[in-house]
Amino acid sequence: MARDDDDGRSGKGRLTTRRALMKAAGVSALAFGAGTAVGTAGATPASNGQTVDLGEEGLTDGGSIDPYLETHFDSDTVVHVPAGEYTYTGSGLGGSYSNAALLGSTEGVVLRGASDSDTPVGPTITATDGSVRLENLTIKGAHGQPNSRWRVGADAGARMELLNVNMPDGAVDGANATGIYTGTEHAGTLWVSHCHFSNFGDTALDVSDPYKGSNGTVVVEDCDFVNTGTAAISVGGDDSVVRGCYFEATAPVSTGAGGQARRAIVVDGPGTNVEIDDCDVDWTGVASAPIEFTLPSTGGDGTISDLRVTDPGSGLLSAAWDVDRTWTGENINVTEV
């Protein structure tokens, strides 16, 4: 089913898009067996490498996944995780890889952090060549004061993919903790799709810093950010894309942001050709503008299109500079409640 060309607004709504992914998953899975669907080509970054099923290797529901990852997660390897809940304390994922994937079962995979939130669980994962994908994983356990963010990125020409990787527990009160972070060294492409973040006091998806360094591409699509703090997303590099995402601020969150205003999207770097498209924002629970342009973003340019916002009259933008010199907006809808 194709979409309607209705003045640029997606006929397939954001939620439809998420559902569509699940539908696509079914198609791809069937076609994979038949060996004909193109979708499978993109789904197996290491299709020419080895495949490991951690269930067959002995991983069982409730067990620790760390040693299995240490043993099996590597370049040119696709690691399948059977459905279940496993403890994960931060070992075995961090490192640099080429053409690797950690694919959770579509039936549900939970990686639960240490019960002590002060034990950081935050691997640094870098794609050096080809693509590295994390898929179908829910990371449970609130991030504590120590930095538990997951740091991801890609070298030039490589691709880091996070697909249905969810962090619903956010951070504990008072923790200045982010969810996922991309550093200045990111030079390739980061694709974050169909992920869910909630209850972070600080930034949930902090992917703006690449503008300070290698200026890699960041694409965030079809993600949900429900009751996040300082920023749901912070972007700043060239060609950054935030598309088809849902932002909600209707309830209090973890108090880790030092009382700063809560934002949906913070443009925190002077990236050019930044695209914010087809997003929905329910900002009825706070009196702050959902989109902020910080001083470091001065001089960047981009487009906000097909944006739908409901707020209590707090305004659409908070800007430290005259953004309408270089940014444009198309089909922005603001409903006050």
Partner: peptide, 26 residues
């Protein structure tokens, strides 16, 4: 004004073999 769509409430949106997006496409 067109109001936003409400959230799905779904944390888990599994995928299996989704192809890389067209978005970084350009």
């Amino acid at each position: 004004a067109t109001p936003p769509s409400s959230g799905s409430g779904d944390v888990w949106t599994p995928a299996d073999g989704a192809t890389a997006p067209d978005s970084d496409d350009e």
